[in-house]
Design a protein around this nucleic acid. Structure first.
Ligand SMILES: [Mn+2]
Ligand SMILES: [Mn+2]
Ligand SMILES: [Zn+2]
Ligand SMILES: [Zn+2]
Lengths: 159, 159
DNA sequence: TTCTAGTTGCGAATAACTCGCAACTTGATT
DNA sequence: AATCAAGTTGCGAGTTATTCGCAACTAGAA
């Protein structure tokens, strides 16, 4: 019988934690699962809302603390999606190949993009500069195809 | 006689502003110059500090408003630099070819990187997905060569 | 010069996190 | 199973980062 894919990573997570002297708590487990099931792009308050279905007493401060450790462990990644709404950040579970994010600055839609060129680029940088990359975030902003088709006049900038 | 390079862009800035119904004010001009001269990575309070040498009465709120318009005009770019210190943002004047930023998560040093592969990647994405890119931000985090050489044990994660 | 829409300085208000600490777990050890 | 040091959490109170409302003040078109 096949495990649900969001469960696959649980063991490694625990090991990674232990290797660093950290503990696998119910909170961290639930928060990691929330992100793995969501598939994508939740901000901290939304993570809290969802995790509270399992842990009613969960506090926002704990969410931030968990996001921080999961980030450092490379379990999740942080995004800002061009800060299309507000100045906060979003989180998503990391997948095997990492992908890029394009945010349409007119309609706010987010497109996830993959290409081997990205891996190639990272490898090239590591080689040339003698450094090792643990996180790679490529965020793009612009006008999506749909919005471009609507051929509206250039929007006015507020303030 | 050659113009200082931070002055080169001034005319286009004014035009871009006017094209959008915006005005070239002393504040915006000074703030843009501060970023062009700084070369890189100032946060809002630091922009304020520097701009105040020219405009003593300048207010932080105005700095944020100016950063917002300059960003929308494509004059400056916003960065997270892996949020190595705090959750705020950094700003830098945009240059002709855009570059990537690598932040060492051990020592905090920031490395600016360029490669034609980045332009190629952007072009490929625009072509494949029928969208137009106005901002491209590639932020990397990891361990720099210098830190790797020091061969320390994997740092403990706080909290 | 005039006039109007865009801007700014202020201070107050939010939004987005972060901390201090006592109470509570985790998981290693006996 | 019981013990216990070290790691964590819930709270509430900070702090930092950014945004707003509004009256006074320009920029720049006419
Ligand atoms: Mn994604
Ligand atoms: Mn950000
Ligand atoms: Zn769109
Ligand atoms: Zn370093």
């Amino acid at each position: 019988m096949v495990l649900a894919k969001h469960l696959k990573q649980r063991r490694p997570v625990t090991r990674e934690l232990q290797a660093r002297g950290l503990r696998m708590t119910a909170q961290r487990k639930v928060i990691a699962e929330v992100l793995q099931k969501a598939g994508k792009h939740l901000d901290a308050p939304e993570v809290l809302r969802r995790a509270r279905q399992q842990l009613p007493g969960l506090h926002l401060a704990t969410v931030y603390r968990a996001l921080e450790s999961l980030k450092k462990l490379g379990i999740i990644d942080e995004l800002d999606l061009m800060h299309f709404r507000g100045t906060g950040h979003y989180y998503e579970a990391r997948t095997d190949k990492d992908h890029m994010h394009f945010t349409c600055q007119r309609c706010g839609s987010v497109l996830e993009i993959q290409t081997p060129l990205f891996e190639k680029l990272k490898a090239q940088i590591e080689g040339r500069h003698g450094l090792s990359i643990r996180v790679a975030r490529l965020e793009l902003g612009g006008i999506c195809g749909t919005c471009a088709a609507k051929k509206e006049k250039p929007e006015r900038i507020s303030a």
